[in-house]
Amino acid sequence: MRLGVLFSGGKDSAFACWKAMQKEEVVCLITIVSRNPESYMFHTPNIRLAALQAESAGLPLLEMETEGEKETELLDLRGALLAARERFGIEGLVTGAILSVYQATRLQRVCYELGLWCFNPLWLADQDEYMEELLDAGFRVIITGVFASPFDGSWLGREIDRRTLDELRMIAREHRITLTGEGGEFETFVIDAPFFSRRVAIEEGSRVYRNHNGVFRIERAGLVAR
């Protein structure tokens, strides 16, 4: 089955993409670029870097811009899926939804309207097992946004390695946040994945942080051999 992956550049959509590659044919990545920083569905600070990740993955990237209004962004998603169907012949969509019924409901509806299959291979995943599997598979992931207590500015740009994962586990237990950041507590960017030909090297980044809210913006990056 020819599939498109709704891709944000973060760990969940990248891992869902990799899972889909084990069973079906992934033919394109689809990125929704939201101009609204409050977007419920699609906002993420380094979305433009998805082009670099797609290049490394050897996959075409379909970028669709949206104003990011609560309901019209679904129309934009619909437009992106129609374009992906026309250009790449997709028969289904893969998403990285884990727990969000809000997100899953909307994605399922749009796919059903268009007669597309909808795959959510991380749906209801055990958070601990998922994070272990992610690292075991060779994904390298950095934190590019923090939006909850107790995260401070030092978390911005930090790689989620075993030591950081242990720290996240402690924080998740003590502060009742999700280990995967599914509740919007933090955002991630994938710098290397088993389906990348080269890794993303960040040459310049900037940090903005205030009151447990911060963003690591990748200003300049390139692809380099591992």
Partner: peptide, 15 residues
């Protein structure tokens, strides 16, 4: 068998 949907519909029940 062993489809891409398995983890979405079967694995949560197994868990």
């Amino acid at each position: 068998e062993d489809s891409l949907s398995r983890e979405e519909f079967v694995t949560p029940v197994e868990r």
